[in-house]
Design a protein around this nucleic acid. Structure first.
Lengths: 192, 192, 192, 192
DNA sequence: TATGAATGAGATTTCATTCAT
DNA sequence: AATGAATGAAATCTCATTCAT
């Protein structure tokens, strides 16, 4: 068996960590943190419980990794230059669509995220990271509504935030037959 | 001497059931169904674990009772004649405020409700009742936007639903210093 | 309400004790001592748990009362002059029938009795009384087989005892369509 | 290096299952199903309670496994060619002895079996398997008594069955100083 | 006397974590 | 690295017994 270089070795480890992370995300999103068991996660990842513990030292730590991982992806999205800073009706609509898409693509993560935020019990784990994220996009939209001449840019931004949160929620709960296109148009009409 | 009338017994039982229900709601809202333990609930209710089981035959059944109880209250609110059917900008605003108030007053219930809906695992327990509730208020607002001459009353109603959901979510997650008044005004401006 | 005489009072108590005893017998015979709960017994007796405890101070004591009561009835049967001491083929057959009848009439008791004897755990409670009973009827049959000129009266008596035990067992397990008559004839043919 | 072959694992599991089965049999035979606790069984098996549940998913399922296991052994005995079908006084005696021996060797199982049959509550679990077994040996003896020219082979077979059941019962209850030899001779004298 | 609510000990069951191989 | 057997603490649930009314 070919001896692996340090490099290859690290890559394999990284790969396996992802595999576990994805499995954990799926299971925790569907069952909640407390409802998800290590066995379920290991089974979903196709590895043994023991091996899982050689990658993450506890269930709690696994959750933390999961949160960081998801938030990093979200942050990356926010920093994506061609996504950020809407400046016209068209780019507003485009960005809106992109965000919705991100949420739907990573819906497991956002379901978990939402659930965690709602439980005071758990929210400590996610609040700090969520805070930053929310402030960031709030800032962007305050600026947008300001430029547009809104009477109260901050309130409008917060309302728009609520729209996004609510839409995300509705899509997560009942994605089938949701008239997304029509609702998006309505949003653009009212906010862009 | 008969120790206690049937009537008295019944009342006491009903009272204690409420006491348990409230304790359960509080604990489950804060820790999630799986994170909440019977011990926590019994402690919160000020009774022994054993006694809890003489009122509810299992943890699962307790959850069901909790859901029914909350949904009944919500349904009662919807049927309250002076709450329903907005017909003017003023009554729209009034109803909006009333709904927000209801949600904030029963915020434990709505936190639990939301969390359950987000977990496919659990959502079966709540979907049927939630469905009916959502359809009801959607109907009311479709009618309202229709009368107002909306270009797409159904999409506008769904968007408004998302606004309510998102607002509710934001209020539950970070109620302090939320500029509720300003946001409400903004909603009225855009939707009423 | 008419004040009761001491006498009436005692009778009522005695009646209620019987009622409890019969309920307990039924439940314990069907579920076993450990499978039977005080609640079941009280419900069967149509009284409250609390009241039951004013008649019998513990589940264990209730069992003891049950055993004594059953064994006394059995002993009474043995002492019944026109039942005891077979002396001819006819009286042998008659007594056999009477015993079978007793067992079938009190089948709950005998089921419980059998079950208890089979559990070393419990047998202490019943062994002493059972012992006496068995010795008594063994004595009777040893005498009978002796008089009949059996080659080994004691072995024949024990075998006959096994026949009775086995028959009782079979009848308790599957009473329907058991060809009792034919088997009894066969017993008489072989033993009387 | 793969830590253990699938094969080895399977074998170890099989071994441990037996260990648990034997412990369970001993404890349940002595205390009854409801009187036996998982703790007792685990202690007897020398393992933790938790581990027991990785082999049998519930106490009830453990009981079922126990029954199947015992009945299979009994069935194997019945199918043993040199045990079956008595055809002469000698082979009748031999088979009788073999059956007694089997019962005494597996006396825990037969105690449990008997107790279960006597409790309507539980008998559902064992009836189906017991039925088949009983019919099988009844068939064998009906044939035997027929060949012997019995006036009523079926009744004689059932009586013989009762003898076996009763003998088994007596041996289980008071094995010490039971004059087994003499009684067996008596049986042979009367039935063979 | 009579009730059934209430308790607490203990039973069954689950699961994060460790460990021998 | 990889497995899953094994543990033990904690969770859910049951029930004999007590007690206020």
């Amino acid at each position: 068996m070919s001896p692996k270089t340090q490099q290859q070795f690290q890559e394999l480890r990284e790969q396996k960590k992802m595999q576990i992370l994805n499995a954990a995300l799926k299971v925790i999103a569907n069952h909640g943190y407390n409802g998800a068991t290590i066995s379920m996660i290991a089974r979903e990842a196709g590895i043994s419980k023991g091996l899982l513990y050689s990658y993450y030292e506890s269930k709690e730590q696994l959750l933390e990794a999961l949160i960081s991982f998801g938030m990093e992806k979200a942050a990356a999205f926010m920093e994506d230059p061609d996504a950020g800073k809407p400046h016209s009706k068209e780019s507003f609509a485009a960005m809106l669509r992109k965000m919705i898409q991100m949420v739907m693509q990573e819906s497991d993560f956002w379901r978990m995220y939402t659930t965690l935020l709602l439980q005071p019990n758990m929210s400590g784990k996610i609040q700090p990271q969520a805070q930053k994220f929310v402030e960031q996009y709030l800032g962007i939209y305050i600026a947008y509504f300001q430029k547009k001449g809104s009477r109260n840019p901050m309130a409008e931004a917060m309302l728009f935030g609520a729209v996004l949160d609510g839409l995300m929620f509705d899509l997560m709960v009942a994605p089938d037959q949701y008239p997304l296109e029509e609702v998006l148009e309505m949003i653009v009409e009212k906010f862009a």
